[in-house]
């Protein structure tokens, strides 16, 4: 589709996420096993893995929701262990499950999150109008979210998650249940965000979406078994699609769910 900013030589060294030997244990079960990776500014980083591979746990640690058992993580320049409040203020988050407050109007939802993330009061109204115009939602400002179609809600939810211009946005299966056309539009929005320099950390179940990412990591049993650009991964695993790469890797899993 297009080249993202992180490919430029200067930005390559500006890592927004740095993870070293990050581990999370729940009792004797190791959910995340000693993972290390870096994500550059404006990069679209795909985070793949079967259910139970440890994706969600890793992501929750990066968002400051879970404390790691050991290892280190820096997100947007802040330590996820000791500065989780700062981390929270510098990131955006959107999940499939969350699709805004249904009984609030479109602008009220935007207003609420802008308020929570401390967007200056005077900027909120003009930015809201700008955003709605960009989405083509001008006529829906006063509409209750529950009367919007699912695809629209997801697009709006994504816009809301980056309304405060975070350094990183975490997307947890953002396109679940959305039709292909809307998914396509959704990814165009992701690219736009990445162009603005926002790092996108995305988990997904759709392998065609993995192809859209700049780099992809694949988790198996809590470890990262592969991490490279989709093209390189396909070459390395001698596969024609990301789907094939994923299947070859997932087969190695102890608790195989595929």
């Amino acid at each position: 589709m297009k080249t993202a900013l992180w490919n430029s030589p200067t930005d390559r060294y500006m890592n927004v996420i740095t993870v070293e030997n990050l581990t999370k244990k729940f009792g004797s079960f190791t959910a995340v096993d000693n993972i290390s990776f870096e994500v550059g500014k404006g990069e679209i980083f795909g985070f793949l893995g079967a259910n139970g591979a440890g994706k969600t746990t890793a992501m929750r640690m990066l968002c400051g929701l879970l404390k790691p058992t050991s290892g280190k993580g820096i997100v947007a320049g802040y330590d996820i262990r000791s500065e989780s409040e700062n981390v929270k203020a510098s990131i955006g988050y959107m999940s499939q499950k969350f699709a805004l407050y249904e009984d609030l109007k479109v602008w009220e939802n935007i207003r609420l999150y802008a308020g929570i993330y401390g967007v200056p009061e005077k900027d909120i109204a003009p930015k809201t109008d700008e955003l709605l115009k960009e989405l083509g939602f001008e006529g829906e400002k006063e509409t209750l979210v529950k009367s919007l179609p699912l695809g629209w809600r997801q697009k709006l939810a994504f816009s809301v998650s980056i309304f405060h211009e975070p350094k990183v946005v975490f997307l947890d299966e953002p396109t679940g249940g959305v039709d292909p056309v809307t998914r396509r539009q959704f990814w165009e929005m992701i690219y736009k965000a990445s162009d603005k320099g926002i790092t996108v950390f995305v988990t997904t179940h759709y392998m065609d979406e993995a192809e859209y990412c700049n780099r992809v990591s694949i988790m198996v049993d809590g470890r990262i078994d592969a991490l490279d650009s989709p093209a390189n991964l396909k070459k390395e695993f001698n596969a024609t699609s990301m789907d094939e790469v994923f299947r070859k890797l997932a087969r190695k899993s102890k608790n195989n769910e595929l």
Partner: peptide
């Protein structure tokens, strides 16, 4: 239940 709590917990609030 709606999952909004998770979102609030991720927020700086």
């Amino acid at each position: 239940e709606l999952g909004t709590m998770e979102l609030l917990l991720v927020s700086p609030m």
